[in-house]
């Protein structure tokens, strides 16, 4: 890591320059230093984030859920979004996906401000969300599920051959080897295989950002490995992946970037290589990190 941690430069993150009561002032310095690592990182390829959120605010009535949240999501990287229950992860993601709008803040896609009012707008931009419950139809097979609601037709009739071919191509492209047949009903698939189908459906439509909500929460050890490998491959193929997870091991293993939400504020977005497991946990639970960053002298 070429970036120098500990170099004190002015950080433009509004949440850090105006610490809210939720983020105690004494934590600012350390958090700052980590943010600097992020902001000073030399450009790697096309480093302009594909998705940029700045100063996002969202309230539900009297409850202030998101307080000036910033987030950068880059193509070819896995950005983990972590935070305790109630930190605002779901709210942030649902806003990105267009399920509800943000009250204030900038929503930039590929550097340009965009207006996302409903899920269809987000889909049109190339943003797909894989929700925790996957939203698969058990009684339909893999191909049918992947094309659900967007079936390919030829003169009004379902074009099964083309759909099956494209489904296979997508799965092959993701190097999925766990599916015996794409004509198996989803009911007879394991949890990991279902997750694979849901992810494959999300990337089938040339999407640019795939947001995964707790993809490994219900999986066993071997299946978790499979899904994490798949998540990594998505990023390696050039997609931007946002991974929401409670599992620190998963996050440390697969993420390039970790964004930590604490009580509705983004307390840090750091390179995974620059932090330790316990620092991330500390950020999640207290909103600040006490130790120097791991990558400080790297």
């Amino acid at each position: 890591m070429s970036a120098r941690a500990g170099t004190h430069t002015v950080n433009s993150r509004p949440v850090l320059s105006n610490p809210s009561p939720a983020v105690p002032g004494r934590s600012t310095r350390k958090v700052l230093s980590m943010s600097v690592t992020q902001t000073e990182r030399p450009p790697v390829g096309a480093d302009t984030p594909i998705l940029t959120l700045r100063g996002i605010e969202k309230s539900f009535g009297a409850v202030h859920v998101l307080r000036g949240v910033d987030l950068d999501v880059r193509a070819g990287q896995v950005t983990a979004l972590v935070g305790d229950n109630g930190a605002g992860k779901s709210t942030l993601i649902k806003g990105v996906a267009g399920i509800y709008g943000f009250d204030a803040g900038e929503y930039l896609f590929e550097g340009k401000p965009v207006a996302v009012h409903n899920p269809r707008d987000a889909n049109a931009l190339g943003i797909e969300v894989v929700y925790q419950d996957l939203a698969l139809c058990d009684n339909l097979d893999v191909v049918h599920n992947m094309f659900l609601g967007r079936e390919l037709t030829a003169s009004g009739l379902l074009n099964e051959a083309t759909m099956e071919t494209r489904a296979r191509e997508t799965l092959d492209g993701l190097s999925v080897r766990t599916l015996q047949s794409v004509r198996t009903p989803v009911a007879s698939l394991s949890g990991g295989q279902r997750q694979t189908v849901a992810i494959a459906r999300a990337v089938l439509w040339n999407s640019k950002i795939v947001i995964l909500d707790e993809p490994t929460a219900a999986l066993g050890v071997a299946q978790t490995e499979q899904v994490l490998a798949l998540v990594r491959r998505l990023a390696d193929k050039g997609l931007a992946v946002v991974l929401i997870s409670h599992n620190m091991n998963d996050v440390m293993q697969v993420a390039d970037d970790i964004a930590v939400l604490y009580l509705g504020a983004m307390v840090a977005q750091v390179k995974t290589a620059d932090v330790t497991h316990s620092q991330v946990v500390e950020l999640i639970t207290t909103g600040r990190a006490t130790n120097g960053t791991k990558g400080a002298d790297a």
Binding site: P119, R120, Y131, L134, A135, L136, C137, D138, N139, L140, H144, L148, G149, R150, E151, T153, G156, L157, L158
Partner: peptide
């Protein structure tokens, strides 16, 4: 079995919420 409508019938019967989210 051969039209999108028929496929949507099965989808709604299998998981109406998934069908709704898929834009059906």
């Amino acid at each position: 079995t051969r039209t999108a409508w028929g496929r949507h019938v099965y989808a709604v019967g299998g998981n109406a919420e998934a069908a709704r989210r898929a834009g059906i």
